[in-house]
């Protein structure tokens, strides 16, 4: 009895010790976001003398983070929707349809996964310029969708492969067209896979830095991650609290996704996604 209790305490201690490095910096940022710049410079571990909520007000209005949140939601929302649709379509095609060039297409998708955007950065910016999309959210949305698409596509492919083919055949016997089989039988069955892909797409596009950094020049179009990394207060000063408050604001949508959807994300990820 004693030994199990001891192991139990040891276990708690171990897991807590492992968790501290992950939690503590976030807590520090959270605490400092309610503090003042002077306080942080003097003793950044001390609690603020009161909650300086005005940091958040300033970040939201003064530093225009309301705009950046809007931009990020617009970009990530569009990318998520596009990837959801395209990955489902493409994933179904390479998983379930028999057509010439399927293996080649699969190879292309694999190649795209291991082709980092950096390797073709300069020609990509030229393409965007030639299309007249410079300095636009559209450029970020399209390039992000195109470059992120392969992984969700493979996830969807694995997912479709786990669905029994008999269901499609049953539909065909009933007289459904190939489109009908996809649209009304297979796609609905793949709902949890699609949800997983949507969450992936949202997390990754919300996180992305490179493409916004390359394609957005005007600050009123910046996404939140990019705006935080480039946040520069007037007068060549340091403004820690605004940056901390903005960072905490930026976690909002992620926390919502985590609390509402993470269980289903986890389910979707494993049920089919990675087993195929």
């Amino acid at each position: 009895m004693l030994s199990t209790r001891l192991t139990r305490y040891a276990l708690y201690a171990l897991v807590t010790a492992m968790a501290i490095p992950f939690v503590f910096p976030s807590l520090w940022v959270f605490m400092a976001s309610f503090s003042t710049n002077t306080q942080i410079t003097m003793d950044s571990l001390a609690l603020p003398d009161r909650l300086y909520l005005e940091n958040y007000v300033h970040a939201w209005t003064g530093a225009k983070f309301s705009t950046f949140v809007y931009n990020s939601l617009a970009v990530s929302g569009s990318v998520t929707a596009l990837i959801g649709v395209l990955a489902t379509m493409l994933g179904y095609a390479v998983a379930r349809l028999d057509f010439p060039g399927r293996r080649l297409l699969l190879l292309l998708i694999m190649m795209a996964i291991v082709t980092p955007v950096f390797s073709y950065l300069e020609p990509l910016t030229r393409v965007v310029r030639q299309l007249g999309l410079s300095n636009s959210r559209t450029a970020v949305i399209l390039t992000t969708t195109a470059t992120f698409l392969p992984v969700p596509t493979l996830l969807m492919r694995s997912f479709f492969l786990t669905l029994p083919e008999e269901l499609g055949d049953a539909g065909r016997v009933e007289g459904a067209s190939e489109w009908g089989v996809f649209r009304h039988i297979m796609a609905p069955l793949a709902r949890s896979g699609i949800l997983t892909v949507l969450i992936f797409a949202f997390l990754w596009s919300w996180n992305d830095l490179l493409l916004p950094a390359v394609f957005l020049q005007a600050p009123d179009k910046y996404t939140i991650a990019y705006a935080i990394t480039t946040l520069k207060p007037a007068g060549f000063r340091q403004d820690h609290v605004t940056m901390f408050a903005a960072s905490i604001i930026s976690t909002g949508p992620m926390i919502v996704v985590y609390l509402l959807l993470m269980r289903r994300f986890i389910a979707g990820l494993t049920v089919g996604g990675l087993r195929g």
Binding site: P25, S26, D208, L209, I224, A225, T229, M243, T251
Partner: peptide
């Protein structure tokens, strides 16, 4: 919850 770039900025 923080994006990688924001984490680095922090």
């Amino acid at each position: 919850f923080f994006s990688m770039a924001v984490a680095a900025a922090l």
